[in-house]
Design a protein around this nucleic acid. Structure first.
Length: 569
RNA sequence: CGGGCUGUAGCGCAGUUUGGUAGCGCACUUGCUUUGGGAGCAAGGGGUCCUCGGUUCAAAUCCGAGCAGCCCGACCA
């Protein structure tokens, strides 16, 4: 491609709206432009990168038993009502009506469509297993789109759906996708961690995320520094030391805590650590009020609580509810004397002795409170969010690190959630009707572009890996010496003929402009030639990945550069 | 939805406090010079100053309402 013809508007200055590196560079390098918040147009260079990512995903998916389809963006409300998600998905779905007043949405995901698609065609266990995938734009009315393409309202996603007779079939399908994902991310040159994850709104059982560690990531993941334990913080297990409680049990005491409503306030006022307190919270769990206790220095993990209670919605209770249950405002609430409500506590609460908690009286707390003696707990469970430095729940020896990462892929075992509600069944060998057992497998295509840039850039711009670079070679003829122009063109034509993706900067620009743009757009190999180098019968080669420079004789540049091409990462 | 900030040329911004001819840098056009890491000089083009309303002889500037964008939070692949 000749750069004089390429629609590549690069920016010298960083747009003010872009916070993170990838967002800045995607705008500056002319990969995309914003239409409105979270909605982008992809320009030739950006779209070329997207197509390369899609190609790798396609190739690896086609090696599995999955087959590509294309499903609609515009979806009728009916299928969403069938799966009971029309209400549940909430405002994240863009909804609208057609001229006949029929309701539609723009697909935020495709479980419903795929289930609807297969339910009329699948008759027999002989039709299974089946695995279909698509690469499609999804639309979600995100509360707050940000970080460019990282959290956008329109994004391209590869999603696959597996359908099996039973759970052992699902396990196989899941493993096949898991293995394919490992290959895909490897080929993309992305160093991803595979972490245990929560299946969240999608529903289902096992789940893994493929996460790239990056400052800009929105996902917190937990890694052990000793073993290979890795999990999303939403479900990372909490280590519970073998407890020996030897402390004497002291007598309960009411104490004055004027206007002290927070754990930190109590720490300062009483000069006691948060670990010697009980934090009481009232949660609204699927419209039911439940009292939840954690240690004062712990944070409640709502995902763990939701999973334990098999709840779909969890939110902090309203002020009125708190008053109704405890007869006091937040800040002084405690678990004593509220037997008519269910009390659930984090497992670490069980081993607390002589601690502080709210007294359900304004400006008062209790001292020397002991679970069991002073109040009853209906259930103890792991409900706290793990913290940096915690002991590893897996190996017992290592300590946990918390890192932010970018979620690039997510695979779920859905089970029969959708097939049951939507009637996707088949007849088994005994002629009995059974729901199809499903799995769901997503990869964020556009997000990968951003992640790749986050992983690899420097102060001059993007540094693409070989597999997704829009072009492999960029040729910079400097000056307007005719011999230079002619030679550059010959080299360009040669690589074009060899099917190497090559750019030539034939613009009437100064050397500095060409160098800077070449760096900015991150092409792995740069060939420079000017009258100076031509006099010595050489061309200059710069490797963007290693930063190294070479002089290569014009007589054997074809072989030499081919070698460099094959050595690219 | 709550909190904070911002809307002035394609981009980055000043001007708003104290009302009085709409500016700077980059980019763009033309000419000359220059030509190996974002050139120099000269001449030029480009504005509903977010919108609507109000105050005033006079509004980018003051007042009111609205809209949009960005950041933080809740939420989320």
């Amino acid at each position: 491609m000749r750069m004089s013809k390429l629609y590549l508007p690069t920016l010298k200055e960083t747009p003010a709206e872009a916070e993170i590196k990838s967002h800045q560079l995607m705008l500056r390098a002319g990969l995309m432009r914003k239409l409105s918040p979270g909605i982008f147009s992809y320009l030739p260079l950006g779209y070329k990168v997207i197509k390369k990512i899609e190609k790798i995903i396609r190739e690896e998916m086609d090696k599995t038993s999955s087959q590509e389809v294309l499903l609609p963006v515009m979806q009728t409300s009916k299928i969403w009502q069938d799966s009971n998600r029309w209400e549940k998905f909430g405002p994240i779905m863009i909804r609208f009506k057609d001229r006949k007043e029929h309701e539609y949405c723009l697909g935020p995901t495709h479980e419903e469509v795929i289930t609807d698609l297969i339910k009329d065609e699948l008759r027999s266990y002989k039709d299974l297993p089946l695995n279909l995938y698509q690469i499609q734009t999804k639309v979600r009315d995100e509360i707050r789109p940000r970080f460019g393409v990282m959290r956008s309202r329109e994004f391209i996603m590869k999603d696959a759906y597996s359908m099996d007779e039973d759970y052992s079939g699902l396990d196989k399908s899941y493993q096949e996708m898991y293995d394919a994902y490992v290959k895909i991310f490897d080929r993309l040159g992305l160093k991803t961690h595979i972490v245990e994850a929560d299946s969240g709104a999608m529903g289902g059982k096992d789940s893994h995320e493929f996460v790239l560690i990056a400052e800009a990531g929105e996902d917190d993941i937990v890694l052990c520094d000793n073993c290979d334990y890795a999990a999303n913080i939403e479900l990372a297990g909490s280590y519970l030391a073998k407890q020996t409680v030897s402390q004497d049990i002291k007598k309960k005491k009411l104490i004055d805590t004027p206007d002290i409503k927070t754990i930190q306030g109590l720490e300062n006022f009483l000069n006691i650590d948060g670990s010697q307190m009980i934090k009481t919270m009232l949660m609204k769990v699927d419209d039911q009020l439940i009292v939840v206790l954690v240690r004062g220095d712990d944070q409640l993990n709502e995902v763990k609580l939701a999973n334990f209670l098999q709840a779909t919605t969890i939110e902090p209770a309203e002020e009125e509810d708190i008053f109704e249950v405890f007869n006091v405002k937040a800040g002084f609430i405690g678990p004593l004397g509220i037997e008519e409500y269910q009390i659930i506590a984090d497992q670490r609460v069980k081993y607390l002795r002589n601690v502080v908690c709210g007294a359900n009286i304004v400006d008062k707390h209790f001292k020397n409170i002991n679970p069991g003696r002073d109040f009853a707990v209906d259930d103890y469970h792991d409900l706290r969010t793990v913290q940096q430095g915690d002991c590893c729940p897996e190996c017992d020896k290592g300590h946990l690190k918390i890192k932010s990462g970018i979620e690039l892929g997510h695979i779920f075992k859905l089970g029969t959630k959708y097939s049951e509600s939507m009637g996707a069944t088949y007849l088994d060998e005994n002629g009995r009707e059974q729901p199809v057992v499903m799995g769901s497998y997503g990869i964020g295509v556009t997000r990968i572009v951003a992640a790749a840039i986050e992983q690899s850039n420097d102060q001059n711009g993007i540094i693409w890996s070989k597999s997704i670079a829009p072009y492999q070679i960029i040729i910079l003829p400097l000056g307007n010496n005719e011999e230079v122009q002619k030679t550059a063109k010959n080299i360009y034509e040669y690589f074009k003929k060899m099917d190497v993706e090559v750019l030539i900067d034939d613009r009437l620009e100064r050397a500095g402009v060409k160098f800077n743009d070449a760096d900015l757009i991150g092409i792995p190999l740069r060939i420079t030639l000017g009258s100076r180098s031509l006099q010595n019968n050489v061309i200059e080669l710069h490797n963007r990945q290693t930063g190294q420079d070479y002089e290569i004789s014009l007589d054997n540049y074809k072989i030499e550069i081919k070698k460099f091409l094959s050595e690219l990462k």
